[in-house]
Design a protein around this nucleic acid. Structure first.
Lengths: 121, 121
DNA sequence: ATAAAAGTTAGAATAAATCTAAATCTATTA
DNA sequence: TAATAGATTTAGATTTATTCTAACTTTTAT
């Protein structure tokens, strides 16, 4: 656990949003101007690998990272692109039943129009 | 519907696998050596937009394309990376119930070990 | 036949992510 | 404390997937 890693983890912990590697880099640079992009990626990858944080693929933009508290799924607004979290605890069991074989996990992104955008239309 | 588009669609139709843009390009070039990568992307994007084919994001490698017959979800082997299709007709309704708001669609990839890899271990 | 529109091409450009090799830090041992 | 080995960071180059651009070609409509 190096200073750099601690900083990156802290940034993710204190953010309520999903952050791209770029955003993490920008925020980290504010507090540690010498930090390199490669370090950010190294640490994000290492921590993702270790299960401390999770990586979320977002169609049409860079992958995001977030502090993984408990497993959850994502709602993505098709209008503004913002991500929201949603918890669907029943899903994994249902998938297991349906697929009939052991599953190690899954990625789900539901596309919708977020309340904010819905109001505008 | 240009010759190029027809060719690309034919390639996707006759393939039972999910193809990356690169693979489509390679196969198309065999039959039409002058075709350009940009044309492949133009057409894949246009046809995806039009709903004729679908684009599948695969973690850790390039996006794949396939002829969209009916909506379905994906099983991805965590060992060899191969994709398989699975149909979960109940899922959209259940998601609608759970999320409580209109959803336009969803992306689901279930991670598992495919029978082939399971045998090997 | 000619003008306008649409589509294709090659190659440059971009963006995300990774790799590389040198430099720096950390911990361990003598 | 000094030497050393190992891990980590750094800067920048590289790779890979994809998109953009501008010139060229084909198609369509007049």
């Amino acid at each position: 656990m190096t200073k750099q890693r601690e900083l990156i983890l802290q940034i993710l912990t204190h953010s309520d949003r999903h952050l791209t590697a770029d955003e993490v880099f920008f925020l980290a640079k504010l507090q540690m101007p010498s930090i390199a992009m490669a370090t950010v990626y190294n640490n994000l990858n290492a921590m993702t690998e270790a299960g401390m944080i999770s990586r979320v693929h977002v169609d049409g933009s860079a992958d995001c990272f977030e502090k993984g508290t408990e497993p959850h799924d994502h709602l993505r607004c098709t209008s503004c692109g913002k991500l929201a979290n949603v918890s669907l605890p029943w899903l994994k069991d249902r998938l297991f039943q349906a697929v009939g074989t052991d599953i190690s996990g899954y990625d789900l992104t539901v596309h919708y129009i977020c309340p904010e955008c819905r109001r505008k239309v």
